[in-house]
Design a protein around this nucleic acid. Structure first.
Lengths: 196, 196
DNA sequence: CAACTATGCAACAAAATGTTCTATAAGATC
DNA sequence: GATCTTATAGAACATTTTGTTGCATAGTTG
């Protein structure tokens, strides 16, 4: 029997990582240690050391397992402005109100030195970009898009600014701001004649 | 005589923080400890503990003292496109080639839980935004700007995307990309009739 | 049931972290 | 220059965190 299939092993692992994530998001990555996870779960320290010989492994596993941004289902009903409002409204809410807002900065920092964390967060972002792309493609098929709309750049702008405002600039993310942001995006995206 | 004015105290402090910064940017914040700084400088551990009773204080001081983004002098000669090219080119270089690119993520992560780090990085960003504002104001005075240009949003977009590409999306920051980025910004900023 | 293996517990080892005391040397005061 | 003050180096020590190991127990597999 392989270790990785033993139900006890799996159960311990899941329990530990859930607790690790809880600690991670209520305090910080640094607060995640074998000792703190043991205290939180009742799992003995020695068992945790058998699963993760070093703290960094434990922290990274906790991060990679559950620290992913909420997936936002792309809405492509149109019009573009409404779709953007839906997508970016959810992104905004995710940054403001879910653990992701607290966890993202620590993942970003980890990604600077750790390849696994880097490819994880890069992957998340590529996915979000792809979702956004489908929104713009739908708009194009509806004939809403300006023929020369710089879609790639617009998508980057759409997503980057909320992250930057929240994590770096420390500015509020609210619907007042979002309206203006979307308005600006649409000015470049929409065909001059299109309904606004 | 006050402690904070004693030249020996100042010298020790400077030496220690310089070393701390060096360790910080060549390894990580976590590598900054009283022991590592002592080894790097020859300052005795007990002295370091007198200056910074706890590691976090030492780490934070190192961060706040020297971890600031390179200041980019605003260029406002015009035309706007050239000014943007100058400013964003330097920002790009700073992110790609100076310690700031490695340090920023760790500051952002620290800012999520520490008020001092937060206000420091928020302050840096507000400064950069202000610089960018002077660029746009100069363009306006030259009559380049579209009357309804959403300057606030444009500035946010201009700055946010490079940070996001580098730190979150893991995409390259190069002149190929920058040209398109600036082109897109100018389309929204410039008066329809203005020279491009 | 028999063989295997993950767990809990306790004892231990090692390293990181923090404290305190003393002698010395550098700076400040007169 | 003599004296008082204060920061430092160094060492000894206490504490906490981190990691290891051996063994009895209990759950899992065949």
């Amino acid at each position: 029997m392989k270790t990785t299939e033993d139900p006890r092993y799996i159960a311990t692992r899941n329990l530990a990582l859930d607790a690790a994530f809880k600690i991670f998001h209520s305090e910080s990555v640094l607060a995640v240690t074998h000792a703190s996870v043991s205290a939180e779960t009742g799992i003995s320290r020695s068992t945790l050391y058998r699963h993760w010989p070093h703290v960094e492994q434990l922290r990274k596993d906790a991060m990679l397992r559950v620290a992913r941004p909420p997936v936002i289902a792309p809405r492509t009903n149109g019009p573009l402005k409404a779709d953007l409002n839906w997508m970016l409204g959810l992104l905004m809410a995710a940054l403001n109100e879910t653990p992701w807002g607290k966890i993202a900065p620590q993942m970003i920092a980890t990604a600077a030195t750790d390849e696994d964390a880097k490819s994880a967060i890069n992957g998340f972002m590529a996915d979000r970009k792809r979702d956004m792309m489908s929104v713009f493609e739908a708009a194009e098929q509806r004939g809403e898009l300006a023929p020369d709309a710089p879609v790639e750049n617009l998508i980057e702008m759409a997503i980057s600014v909320p992250y930057h405002r929240k994590l770096v600039a420390g500015l509020p993310l609210d619907y007042d701001w979002l309206d203006g942001h979307i308005e600006t995006l649409c000015r470049l995206a929409l065909r001059p004649g299109a309904a606004d």
